[in-house]
Design a protein around this nucleic acid. Sequence first.
DNA 1: GAAAGCCATAAAGGTTCTTTATGCAGGTTG
DNA 2: CAACCTGCATAAAGAACCTTTATGGCTTTC
Lengths: 291, 291
Amino acid sequence: MQVDPGALRVVEAVARHGTLTRAGAAMGMSQPAISYQLRRIEERLGTALFERGSGGCRPTAAGEVLLRALLPALAQIDAALAEVAALSRATGLRILTDFGFAGLWLMPRLAGFRNAHPEIDVQITAAQEMAMARPGEVAIRFARAGDLGAEAWLLMPERVMPVCTPAYLAAHGPIADPADLARRTLLHLDAPPEARWFTWASWFATQGVVRPRRSGELGLNTYDFVVQAALAGQGVALGWMPLIAPHLASGALVPVGPEIIRPDTGYWIEAPGAVTPALQALSDWLRREAS
Amino acid sequence: MQVDPGALRVVEAVARHGTLTRAGAAMGMSQPAISYQLRRIEERLGTALFERGSGGCRPTAAGEVLLRALLPALAQIDAALAEVAALSRATGLRILTDFGFAGLWLMPRLAGFRNAHPEIDVQITAAQEMAMARPGEVAIRFARAGDLGAEAWLLMPERVMPVCTPAYLAAHGPIADPADLARRTLLHLDAPPEARWFTWASWFATQGVVRPRRSGELGLNTYDFVVQAALAGQGVALGWMPLIAPHLASGALVPVGPEIIRPDTGYWIEAPGAVTPALQALSDWLRREAS
DNA sequence: GAAAGCCATAAAGGTTCTTTATGCAGGTTG
DNA sequence: CAACCTGCATAAAGAACCTTTATGGCTTTC
């Protein structure tokens, strides 16, 4: 049967500290736990590694043989683990997000983060469907509370309003109310069934209006394509804040209906693994930029 | 949080075999178990060690750093474990037993074992109360079935009969029956309450006779002292077979009552840990000597 | 003789780790 | 282009491991 080198840390600690009690204290374990682990190792090896008594423990001949190899080997492993951990801290982050968020919100702002943190390498991986993030990665995904792990946190809640260009209004007349809006040409963001964001249908439902998608209306599967179509005056789009905030600020797009806010749905952040300084810095920056 | 060097065997196996599936096969584990272990290590380190895909796994930069230290360190540990295991096989045995068994049965025979197995170092540790045997040790203790672990086995059942010297009989007359025996001077083996062997009281109980210990009767806490007192003609002793077999054979002691046999009580052998060649040889020899 | 320190073991409960089942992705073959 | 194969990922269930507290015994020291 294999001996687990992990449990051999117990052997090293007992040799170093001289008693099971002190070895346990050093390892954050109780004395019986150390005794149990040591007995298990000795059973697997078929020989005793320590002689025990009231004065503590002394290695047997077999114990000496093992310790001679174990001490340098564990030191080497620990040095490598420390180097990997340091590498992980210094190594940049990969941000996984959707195209819309990447193009409309993140990329325009990233220069600010990179200026503030030149030592952190950032990679952005935009995809239509994101894999689960792994250590060293941050996923920024549109989700609803409960969809993600307990450690995910909400970056920005969903705030959405219908928008179009002033030129569209000049050409087609102003939009008086949601019923009037329902008669206009809408631009659709195509999405897989599990997508959590508003659709036109669900947005109108909040206004008490039933408005299914008409044939011939433009559908696009990437949000910044939807925004480009709206900027080209091809119809009315749903505008997500703060993604379209710059276009509202410049007057290129204007709101033509009320803003709906859902506090439990929106862009959530998920970052498994240890909180590294790089991750902490990015998280702090994202919170400031989102508020 | 510490990374368990035991789990790092998974890292080494994945690097060596190139896929989680093959690493699992090599380690006798399923592929999801390997996947789970690897993910746990990566979470603790805060970085990915492998890039995975349908073509298998390739170490990341961090993975390379770790593997560079890990491979020699694990090789060193495994070599030491092999050496310890070899040592354990070659190393002798320590036999723990009581004084009576050691002096009357084991020591007189041990020359035979040592002649047959000169390469096995044997130590005998006789004590009144034995500690639990640990790996590399054999306990030969007087017990009843159920007192010990499931792997203990019965070396010799308890066989006991009253004995005295012929000179004692010449001086005090022959002993006709148990009732007559109850009137004679008895030699007692003092024992702690948990001792499993017969006492005079329990021996007489099997004969339907109530015979408590009289004041002034000799009590000794070591069995070969009891035998010595019997040989000196100081009274009648309980004789345990085969401990007193030589004295019966020589005529120095003669039976003066029936032999009682208890098949589930007697000298049991207990040897925790792996069965080494030395242990196997001793067990075989003990079985032969006892039959 | 009492107290302190040490080790050993049992019992209880929590955590880890294994399995099977299953799904998805990518590559290969027909 | 479809089917199949290989590989990885995850969930759920159950087994195994490992921790704790409680406790007892032994040795040493004061």
